[in-house]
Design a protein around this nucleic acid. Structure first.
Lengths: 345, 345
DNA sequence: TAGAATTTCTAAAACCTTTTACTAAAAGGA
DNA sequence: TCCTTTTAGTAAAAGGTTTTAGAAATTCTA
């Protein structure tokens, strides 16, 4: 077992002062004479003492940790390259402000339970609406949150133009004459209110695709939507399965790059040439997208910036800022080698 | 400010019992009658109460969080694709055991200070020796640690055969006749004892290269080693700079895939054909390595497995297991398209 | 029915800080 | 010199839970 931790009392005793003085030496040196402060700190060093962070968190009512709330377990979350970029952005703020960032995943299946147990000061909520059943209690408890990729009313939110980006991607393929477009979507946490089947990021991206179909006078075939895990392997599996099921698409719209890259890999395996036999457009523009072979056409969104902004807003909120802000960042279609360029007109 | 949190006393009062009973209702239901337990829980639900996790951590002397201690700041850490895979492994154990994983970065420059402030139960120490100045105090405080990619004596360690893998990579290039091999290394945290200039993973990999050179009767030119940030951008910058500085290597040995991929990108930019003009071998075999164009030859190490094992050992140690274990995983050279196959003999 | 055993619940201590309000001593002002 | 102000330090409360030891009430045993 861990060695009994040195406490403030032991330091106080050995230095011949009160615990208060020791606390002051660490947090408020101007309250005591420089001489005493130095003596205390030297005793503390000698004993290997430093204030117990948990006791500190208890009294200060803050942990110095930002939670990033995700609806998937930890290993799934880190299997999605999106999160690395996002955490980079969140991390840049944390680095500046001397904070940490903790990924908070469902606790034994329950996201709400996870939020009850996590030692964090506030949450960046990823991919869930403020109204979601798991989020609502946070609001009630007055815990600061910022919603990313979801709808919020009373708290700050950061979104990108998912619908517009998706629309552009679909239009590009439709304009090139594709009709058999397979859509690869990620699994969505069940919506808490069933107004619409799809919601959140996924919903907005699908809505963009759908609008593009409509604008081209085409029916949107829901049975040409397949679900996939949000990872490279997931995309590979989903496309292979679809192929086995008899789908013979000439183009793919994937809701994330990870899945799109998985499709690329599956296609190669099936002997399909991208883009000749199959054009593919992803979503996100993760750093990997430019490196794949062929490089991936995709809808760019500023992931790192999104994380940075979300963290910034949360930090403001933590500092007592009550006014919610609503940020929307642009997306843009980036054509690389997994598609042909637009037809000339 | 946050709404005042509901406390155990309020629940106790409203339910007409003692705080103890409320605590039992949550943690030890068999200590009280089922009827009372239900009443308490229903009052708790009504009031939106759940035990304050900080107070809980205080008394239980555990947080349920595993620290992953890294010598870089958070955004740098997540810019390195290695960490995603590693966290996947760590996460898989956390998911099983209902734990969280927190990346612990230097606090205002000091890793030791970070370890004093972090709300974690133990550490997976990444890339630092047990003897490192920052780690030693942890040992003294009796905080469980597992060393990954570093040397440990009194605690568990997980390593891979860095030296052997590096040796194989260098041999491959040397056997193909390359003499002007540029080595791209990552920046190393300053060693705490200066027995050798290079130590840790970096040291072992360089030692492998060096042995290969020696076995081929060649001098190991230290001035053909360039430093790089451990990221794709870092590799790009480092190679571009080296090129500008007049280096004209025919092959590259990179200490990590991230940097190797950066080199690939810089080479493309310079109009160099890989592998014709430049053969490149990385290290790690991150998932991205198979996707780049050309795909990256590299030394495979089981990153996810390494994370999983480290977490497992730490969990054991947390559970009171005092016997340190020493795990070494194999590496193997994986030849893809950034090199030519071995010359036939 | 008396005594023992069990069930149900509670009081109080423990966990370790920070902070407020206050005292005592020293310094400053007239 | 006397009164006021400042400096240096302290006692005690607060933060919210878990757990130990024990009390009171109930059930069981013979």
């Amino acid at each position: 077992m861990a060695v009994k931790r040195v406490t403030i009392n032991q330091v106080a005793e050995k230095a011949g002062v009160s615990p208060t003085a020791v606390s002051f030496a660490f947090n408020n040196p101007e309250q005591i004479s420089q001489e005493t402060a130095e003596r205390i700190l030297s005793v503390a060093r000698e004993l290997g003492y430093s204030p117990n962070p948990i006791a500190r968190a208890m009294i200060l009512q803050r942990t110095g940790v930002i939670g990033v709330l995700v609806p998937f377990n930890i290993s799934t979350t880190f299997a999605n390259p999106f999160i690395s970029s996002f955490m980079q952005g969140v991390g840049s703020v944390c680095d500046q402000r001397s904070l940490s960032a903790l990924v908070v995943s469902p606790y034994e299946g329950s996201l709400e339970e996870a939020t009850r147990r996590a030692l964090v000061d506030g949450y960046i909520v990823l991919g869930l609406d403020e109204k979601h059943g798991e989020i609502e209690p946070l609001r009630q408890r007055g815990i600061p949150i910022v919603v990313v990729d979801g709808d919020a009313e009373t708290v700050s939110e950061v979104n990108v133009d998912d619908e517009g980006g998706a629309y552009d991607a679909a239009c590009h393929l439709l304009a090139r004459g594709h009709r058999d477009i397979l859509i690869v979507t990620f699994q969505q946490p069940a919506p808490s209110h069933l107004d619409h089947v799809y919601y959140g990021v996924g919903g907005r991206r699908l809505a963009g695709y759908k609008r593009a179909f409509a604008d081209h006078g085409l029916e949107f075939r829901f049975n040409w939507i397949v679900q996939s895990l949000t990872s490279i392997e997931g995309g590979t599996a989903a496309f292979s399965q679809a192929w086995e099921d008899g789908f013979r698409p000439t183009a793919i719209l994937a809701l994330s790059d990870a899945m799109a890259i998985g499709v690329l890999s599956a296609a190669k395996h099936l002997g399909l040439d991208v883009p000749r036999d199959l054009e593919v457009i992803g979503f996100d523009d993760i750093p990997m997208a430019v490196l794949t072979c062929p490089s991936l056409s995709t809808v760019h969104q500023p992931i790192v910036e999104k994380g940075r902004l979300a963290a910034e807003l949360l930090v403001n909120s933590l500092a007592g800022d009550r006014k919610p802000e609503r940020v929307s960042l642009p997306t843009r279609l980036v054509l690389r080698d997994s598609t042909y360029p637009s037809v000339e007109r």
